[in-house]
C-alpha cells in the first residue's frame, strides 16, 4: 500500500489548499474535519480531478472519544503515512474577559491537545521506508504577544516552540517538523472582511492560500523548521525580535483595536 498524507481541518480554507496541493503532486490523502458533507464533496472533487485515492473520516478533534474512534479506524485500515499536516485550529477574537469557559476549553483542546495527540499517534503509523514529515500550522501571531487575540497567539506560540523542540528531538529518526507561520489569509468571507477591515496593512501582509500551501510543502520537503510566507511578513518578524516585547504588544494592540472598531462600525 502507498503511504498517504494526513490532513486535519481539511475542509477549511488552508486545509483545502493543502489537500489540493498534495493531490496535484499525485499523493494519496486521508482527510479529517468536523463536517461529513464537506469532506465527502472535497474527496470526490479531488479523486475525480487528480486520479488519486482519498479516504476521509469525520471527527471532532476537540473530543477525546471522537479522536479514539479516528485512531481505531486508521489501525483497522492499516494505513501508513509519510506526511502529517496539522491544520485544524480556531480563534475566538475579542477581549479575553468576554470569552466563555467553553471557548477557553475548546481553543486549548483544538489548538494544543488535538495537535499533540495527532502528532503522537501518527508517528506510530509512519511509513518506515520514507522520511516522515510533520507540518504544524502556527501563525505569524506566534511571534508576538497579541492583545485581543491573547489565547490564540499564545496557543500558536506553544505550537511554534513545540515544533522546534520536536524537530530537534526526532532529527535522528528521519522525521522533520515544519512550523508554518502565516499572516491572516483570505479563506472565508469572514476572513476577507477582517483583512479588508485592517485596510492597506491587512492587504499587503496577506498571501494567497494556494501559494502558502505550495510553498510550505516545498519547505517541508527540504526539512526547514519554520516558514513565514511573504517577504514583508518575514521583515515584520525580524523587527519583532529586536524591539522589546512590551512595545510590540502595545503596537499590535492599538492596530487590532482600530481594526475591531472599524469592523464594529461596519457591522
Amino acid at each position: 500500500m502507498k503511504s498517504m498524507v494526513f490532513i486535519t481541518g481539511a475542509s477549511g480554507g488552508l486545509g483545502k489548499a493543502f489537500a489540493v496541493e498534495c493531490a496535484s503532486r499525485g499523493w494519496d490523502l486521508f482527510l479529517t474535519d468536523i463536517s461529513e458533507t464537506a469532506l465527502s464533496k472535497l474527496s470526490t472533487g479531488l479523486t475525480n480531478t487528480y486520479n488519486i485515492d482519498v479516504d476521509h473520516f469525520c471527527c471532532d478533534l476537540t473530543d477525546f472519544d471522537s479522536r479514539t474512534g479516528l485512531f481505531e479506524h486508521l489501525h483497522e485500515k492499516g494505513y501508513a503515512f509519510s506526511f502529517l499536516i496539522n491544520v485544524a485550529g480556531l480563534d475566538y477574537e475579542g477581549p479575553f474577559a468576554e470569552r466563555t469557559r467553553n471557548q477557553i476549553r475548546t481553543i486549548l483542546r483544538l489548538n494544543i491537545e488535538a495537535n499533540l495527540e495527532m502528532t503522537h499517534e501518527l508517528i506510530k503509523l509512519r511509513d518506515p521506508a520514507r522520511t516522515f514529515r510533520i507540518i504544524n500550522v502556527a501563525s505569524l501571531a506566534a511571534f508576538y504577544p497579541m492583545p485581543v487575540k491573547a489565547m490564540y497567539s499564545s496557543s500558536k506560540r506553544f505550537l511554534l516552540n513545540f515544533s522546534r523542540a520536536l524537530g530537534e528531538e526526532l532529527r535522528s529518526q528521519d522525521i522533520t517538523v515544519t512550523a508554518l507561520c502565516p499572516a491572516g489569509m483570505p479563506t472565508t468571507p469572514a476572513c476577507i472582511e477582517a483583512i479588508e477591515a485592517q485596510g492597506f496593512a491587512g492587504r499587503i501582509t496577506t498571501c494567497n492560500v494556494g501559494y502558502v500551501a505550495a510553498g510550505t510543502i516545498d519547505r517541508a520537503l527540504r526539512g526547514k523548521s519554520v516558514y513565514i510566507p511573504g517577504t514583508l511578513n518575514r521583515m515584520l518578524k525580524a523587527v519583532s525580535t529586536i524591539v522589546p516585547e512590551a512595545l510590540v504588544a502595545r503596537a499590535v494592540g492599538s492596530r487590532w483595536s482600530a481594526a475591531q472598531c472599524k469592523r464594529a462600525a461596519g457591522a
Binding site: G13, K16, A38, K41, G45, L46, P186, T187, G210
Partner: peptide, 12 residues
C-alpha cells in the same frame, strides 16, 4: 474574486 478562494469541491 480578489483572493484565491477554494470551493467546497476544492476548485478555485
Amino acid at each position: 474574486s480578489s483572493w484565491y478562494v477554494s470551493t467546497v469541491d476544492g476548485f478555485e
